[in-house]
Structure formats: structure tokens, C-alpha cells
Amino acid sequence: MTTATLGSTLQAAGPMPRTELRPKILLVDDRWENLLATEKVLKPLQADIFKAASGNEALSLVLRHDFAIVLLDVQMPEMDGFETAMLMQEHESMAGVPIIFVTAISKEDKYASKAAEIGAVDYIFKPINPDILKSKVKVYLDLYVQRQQILHLNAILSQSNEELERFAYICSHDMQEPVRMMNAFAGLLAESSDESLGEGGKRYLNFILDNARRMQKMISDILTFSRVGREEIALEEVDCEAILAEILIEFEDLIESSGARVTYAPLPRLETSSTLIRVLFQNLIGNALKFQNGNQPPEITISAARQGPFWRFSVKDNGIGIDEGFRARIFTIFQRLHRKEDYPGTGIGLSTCRKFIQLCGGDIDFTSAPGQGTTFHFTLPNKEAGHHEAI
């Protein structure tokens, strides 16, 4: 998808047409003169008014329309208002629709209590004060319109996010090959022309190589982020401790060179995504090794414990820590807290972790303070593979 296509999609979504926001009111009363009188009172409101002279007629209308509010007479032949309301609420479109009962004779407390049990928002008596009725109905109409606007905006936002992620996936996928070739040819040039290049040429060539590698890393991270949620997450029996051991082997050189000490308690076997566990450990341990406190070698502790229906994992370090003021930014894609010259990275890793883990039914957060290290906590549903105990 090109940028122009993406912009056209967002523009096409546009604001919600006013006609779609116009709510519908359902009036139910077995006396036609009451229906006409109520319709006259409510006509100034920006709403379409439907009338039904019986419970059965009202139920038929509910099957064909989505209503913002229902005004329902209590005393009706064949099917009274209470029975009509209960049958209405069995229909999916009536979930959460406010019902106001209107009555001329059922003024006993027991009827009002029954209306409340059914879920009515009000119980008013005839003769109705027109101004009070109109103001009450207007409140519920305004709430309905606001809710529809929010649902529409959420739909636009969801579509926009999907289009942006698809766009990021296509762009990053197509950029992989030229960046890989740029990196490869720059490397060949460095090997073959090392003696003929002056100091300035070597410095510029190193700039090319460093930026090519950084771009490769960013493209790889964007691809990982855009894939999360686009492909079905495969659940399998995962030995968390075995995956951790593999990750520690990957970081072996960095752990040795930094003098880091990594310890971990027994970790469980779970029914989850092995890719998720790998991504979490790679990012959290990698960050713990990267953001070191220069006064002491890194200390990293990994543990897990049951917490209700979840397993709660912790990755604790003694690094530079995170200021609470950055809490809103820490899991946002492309948001960096430090200059890339000080701490290299793309600003995508933690946002990928949160996106992935939430799709698997868990969440991730942290506790920290500047200079006092950071502990990242993440939860996963307590679905133990084969009902094994933690190793």
C-alpha cells in the first residue's frame, strides 16, 4: 500500500454522518391518543420516533431497529409492560438500552421495585409533565449519540492502526534486501580497500557500516512489531527455564565482558507462545545488560510465582533505573529515553513485548527509580502444560 492509498483510506473514513447519529425512540402504549401526545412532546428532539400499540408490535420493531430509549406503558392487554420489557432484553440490540416505564394506575412501591429489578432507568406517572419528560429523554439521547460517536471513532482508529501496521510491514519487508546489500558491499569495500583508503575514508566507511547495521536492526524490529497480532499465535508447551538458558548463551559474550551475574529461580512450564517467552527474555535481559550503572557490574535476577490465575515473572536489575515521569513513554513505539550515542537501540523492543503479551492474555509493567535499578514484571495465564509443577 502506498502512502497516498493510506491517506485516502483515512480520509474516506471521515467523520460520522449526522444521519447515522440520529437516534430512535420507541413509544409503547395501547392507547393511540397517549402515543400521539407523547410523540408531540418529544418531536422537538433530534430523534426518529416509532410507535407501537402492543407488546407484540413493540417486539417486532425491536427486531428491525436499534433504539436509543424505550418509553413503555405498564398496563396493556395481552402482554403488560413488564413482560414486554423482559422479552425485549433478550434481544442483543436491546442490551443496555434504557427503558422508562410510564403508568397511570400502578403507583404502588412494589411495581416500581419490579421495574427496577427488570432494569428500568425510571418509573414515571401520568399525567406526565412534558418538560420533565423531554429533559429526561434528552439526557439518554445525548448519551446514546456520544456512545455512537465513540464507537465510530474507535472503529476508525482500529482501521487506521491496521493500515499503518500493514504499511510498516510492507515497507520494512521491502527495505530488508537493499539495506542488506548496502551492508554487504560496504563490508567488502572495507576488506578489499583497507590499504588504499586514508584515515578519512576509513572513518566515513565505518559510518556507513554502523548506520547500515542500525537500519537493519530497526527494520527487523519493525517487522517483529508489525507481525504481532497479524499472525495467529500458536500455543504450545513451553519450558520457560530452557528458553532462558538459550537466551543466556546468546548473551554469553556480553555477560562475560561486563562482569554481569545472572541468577534465576525455578521457572514453570506453561501452555503459551515460545516466541513470546523468547522475545520477553531477549528484550528484558538485553536492556538490563545495556543500561548499566557504571559503578558496579550488572546483577540480574529472574523469578516467577503464582498469582491467582496468572504466573507473575520478574526480571530485576541494578542498572541506571527509570524515572516515574517516563512511565507513559516506556512502552510506546519509537520512544527513547536516552540518546542513541549513549545507549543504542530502536525504541521498539518494549512496545513489542507489551503488544505481544497482551494478545496472550497477560500484561507487563515495571517498578523503578533513577540509580536504583529496575524490576520488570509480566504476567501470563496460569495454564500449566501437562499440569507439571515448576521445575
Rank of each mutant, 00 (worst) to 15 (best):
F356W: 10
F334A: 14
T379C: 03
E250V: 13
R329V: 01
L26K: 00
R18V: 08
Q75W: 02
R306Q: 14
M88Y: 01
M1R: 07
T84G: 11
D29C: 11
V28D: 05
L359Y: 07
S160L: 13
S158P: 09
R213I: 11
F167A: 13
V137H: 03
I208W: 05
A112Q: 12
K316R: 09
F356Q: 03
I25P: 02
R261Y: 06
A120H: 01
R214M: 10
R147T: 07
F101Q: 03
E250D: 15
T5I: 04
C171A: 13
T38L: 13
F366Y: 15
A13I: 14
Q46S: 12
F251M: 08
V228W: 10
F366S: 03
G200S: 15
D80A: 05
S303M: 02
V279N: 10
P309V: 07
A116M: 12
D363P: 10
T103H: 03
R339W: 04
A328Q: 13
E324M: 11
F366C: 05
V139N: 10
P344D: 10
Q46E: 12
G361H: 05
S368I: 10
I49K: 00
K134D: 05
D221R: 11
F225E: 11
P297R: 00
S196D: 15
L284F: 02
R278L: 12
E299C: 00
L188M: 11
S113N: 13
A37H: 02
I219D: 15
I330R: 11
T263C: 08
I99Y: 10
Q358N: 15
R214T: 14
E232N: 12
I105C: 04
T38E: 15
T263D: 14
L10F: 14
Q148K: 11
I285Q: 02
D29P: 03
P130S: 07
K110C: 09
I249H: 12
Q148C: 06
A37M: 10
K138S: 15
T3F: 13
L61G: 08
M218H: 15
P23A: 14
E162F: 09
A385P: 05
Q335F: 01
E256N: 08
S368Q: 09
P266A: 05
P127A: 01
I255Q: 01
R22S: 05
A53S: 15
A242T: 11
G371A: 04
L157C: 08
E199Y: 13
T263W: 04
K114C: 06
F334Q: 09
I25C: 06
H338K: 09
I156Q: 13
D253Q: 12
G349L: 01
V74K: 06
K355P: 05
K383M: 07
P44R: 00
M215L: 14
R336T: 13
F125M: 14
K355F: 03
S158C: 12
P381K: 08
S160V: 07
L27P: 07
E90L: 05
S192E: 15
E117Y: 13
S8W: 04
G198L: 02
E341S: 14
A245H: 10
A115R: 01
F281D: 09
G229Q: 11
K383E: 15
L157V: 15
F82S: 08
K138R: 13
K290A: 01
Q176N: 09
A190F: 03
G325T: 06
Y140A: 05
I302K: 08
E177Y: 07
T2P: 00
N211V: 01
H65N: 11
V70E: 03
L45V: 05
I222T: 02
M76A: 06
N293I: 00
I357E: 08
Q176W: 08
S93P: 11
